[in-house]
Amino acid sequence: MKNVVEIDFNRCKECGYCIRFCPKGVLSKGEKVNKKGYYPPVVGDGCIACGTCARVCPDTAITVYKED
């Protein structure tokens, strides 16, 4: 079972809510710029698929799923 956080790269507006509320500190500031000029976060290891990042994202840019 693998936990996946998928970020819609061009939908993100870099508010940082997901980074702030991730209980495991999986997300961190990104370095690649998207179409609108924002820097979407990058996903690291250790995700427990709680879905908090997706629930706080104002732009519904995050999808969380578990994959077999």
Partner: peptide, 25 residues
């Protein structure tokens, strides 16, 4: 795939005009 959070189906593909971090979103 077992989804924990998925974009609601009633939403279209439009990107909101709100600023980053807006509570409206």
């Amino acid at each position: 795939r077992k989804y924990v959070y998925k974009r609601p189906e009633v939403f279209t593909d439009a990107i909101t005009t709100y600023c980053g971090g807006c509570g409206h979103g």
